[in-house]
Design a protein around this nucleic acid. Structure first.
Ligand SMILES: [Mn+2]
Ligand SMILES: [Mn+2]
Ligand SMILES: [Zn+2]
Ligand SMILES: [Zn+2]
Lengths: 145, 145
DNA sequence: CAACGTATTGAAAAAATATTTCAATACGTT
DNA sequence: AACGTATTGAAATATTTTTTCAATACGTTG
């Protein structure tokens, strides 16, 4: 049971000069516990279990704040589009089109591709999102009647 | 100037038994002309230039319909999350983090990566989305003060 | 460990988005 | 050309997000 005020996100908030309030800590804790991402309403519901007087407005405000600091990020999937999860710049999701389960995978060998895009477009590239979609093994079996 | 009723999307609509109405044709034409994706409001605005009495409701309804038929797809970027664009299974966007401009790039060399993911996870993979984000040349200049 | 000044809060109101309802209309068929 | 029905836009409703504002909790200072 790590002290909620000592997590990396909490520290970063404090270092940026923001107060570590109960409502914010509740939101942070919910985000820590749900790596795959939740929408504001869901964060609100779970946050209230931790800090019952939490307001939905504060969830929105805290998400905005964390997003500005780059600590949190929207996770877009085909079926939910307003999910937030703690940030990593590079993300690699594998999504089952049938059961919508999401897993992550290690990503190797994108560097060449990015270098060639860089040269052809003149853009600098500092993050990527790769989403593969298909069928998970279970759904393959289930659908192979 | 190709006949709006003969485009692949229009054909598909007709073949699925739906009527090719003026409002629908206007939405289709807007989508054809804006490959990178527009949100319902923007589609509405441009659609009205083609068919002035177009209603926003019809834009929503047409997008739902096209999405169900798999002809159109949401494009999620960091800053706009309700954009629709005509569907392709594989998508490659390069997004400027500063001005939010979106361009597409040709994607080469993802096959090996996908094959390795396939082997390690047992998933079949039939589509991918790769989103790179960085700074476009203009914004690089502008920010290099 | 008070007492203080201010950033932060939740409730309520307002704004922005999205969906449902319904009578009028345009489409495709005959 | 006439018909039956899917589709339409306006209006009403519902949902989601943002703004406003007085009350409060936080972190600092003495
Ligand atoms: Mn989205
Ligand atoms: Mn990668
Ligand atoms: Zn599955
Ligand atoms: Zn730019």
């Amino acid at each position: 049971m790590t002290d909620p005020r000592q997590t990396p996100m909490a520290q970063a908030l404090r270092e940026a000069g923001y107060k570590l309030t109960q409502p914010r800590l509740a939101v942070l804790q919910v985000l820590e516990e749900n790596d795959a991402g939740l929408d504001p309403e869901a964060i609100y519901d779970r946050g209230k279990l931790i800090y019952p007087s939490l307001g939905l407005v504060t969830v929105y405000r805290t998400l905005d704040l964390l997003a500005e600091l780059g600590l949190v990020r929207r996770v877009h999937s085909m079926h939910n589009c307003h999910n937030y999860a703690s940030a990593r710049t590079d993300r690699h999701y594998l999504i089952c089109e049938s059961c919508h389960r999401v897993i992550e995978f290690p990503c190797r060998g994108l560097e060449e591709l990015m270098e060639s895009v860089r040269q052809q477009t003149g853009y600098t590239i500092n993050a990527h999102l790769l989403e593969l979609s298909g069928l998970c093994p279970e759904c393959q079996k289930r659908l192979a009647t």
